[in-house]
């Protein structure tokens, strides 16, 4: 019972939630980029709506809310660890490689979170028919969302280096 109220237990709990949400988010991001997008052109035309109408909306739900909970738990975790402000200013003036590393990772993650909620999701809403759009607008929206998703895949590599590697700094 003592452990349940101990600060360290809550630290572990928030860290666990942060990692689980992050797996949900980056797992879907990599699914889109490594599996779905390269496979779509190979799927017979009559079967494509199965992906676009059923799998994509569901995957986008877990993807964007995974991103939201990752950043929420991440910020709480940094605050509980006492380095939130130092990480926001990427450790400048604090002579801490640890806070610089986690700070750069946090900023990369924040850019990715912004891409998800303010570029990918609004454009995908046109693509899956939630926001009304003309065929030309849908084409532009799909291209924009696709590129932002690729940017996030690129950024996920250094972001994960910072997150996983921070304990070595």
């Amino acid at each position: 019972m003592q452990e349940l109220v101990a600060f360290d237990w809550w630290l572990l709990f928030v860290r666990w939630c942060h990692i689980a949400s992050g797996v949900m988010w980056i797992g879907h991001l990599w699914y889109f980029n490594f599996t779905q997008t390269p496979t779509m052109p190979k799927i017979p035309t009559e079967l494509r709506p199965g992906v676009a109408k059923y799998i994509l909306p569901e995957a986008l739900f877990w993807f964007r809310w995974g991103a939201m909970f990752t950043i929420i738990f991440g910020l709480i975790l940094a605050w509980m660890n006492g380095y939130l402000w130092s990480a926001i200013k990427i450790g400048i003036g604090d002579h801490s490689t640890h806070n610089t590393a986690i700070g750069i990772g946090m900023w990369l993650g924040t850019i990715m979170w912004f891409n998800v909620w303010f570029i990918i999701w609004p454009n995908q809403k046109k693509n899956i028919g939630i926001t009304p759009a003309s065929p030309d607008e849908i084409k532009v929206a799909a291209r924009t969302a696709g590129l932002a998703s690729r940017v996030n895949t690129m950024l996920s590599i250094p972001m994960l280096y910072c997150m996983a590697g921070v304990h070595f700094y």
Binding site: F34, P38, I157, Y169
Partner: peptide, 30 residues
């Protein structure tokens, strides 16, 4: 010129290049 992000392979390579930049940045700042 083709956008390198249209290729998954080039996206991954760019991700690793960016990681090297981040490592150098960590040591330069701290």
């Amino acid at each position: 010129m083709k956008n390198p992000l249209d290729s998954l392979g080039q996206t991954i390579v760019l991700g690793f290049v960016l990681t090297v930049v981040v490592v150098l940045l960590i040591h330069a700042i701290a």
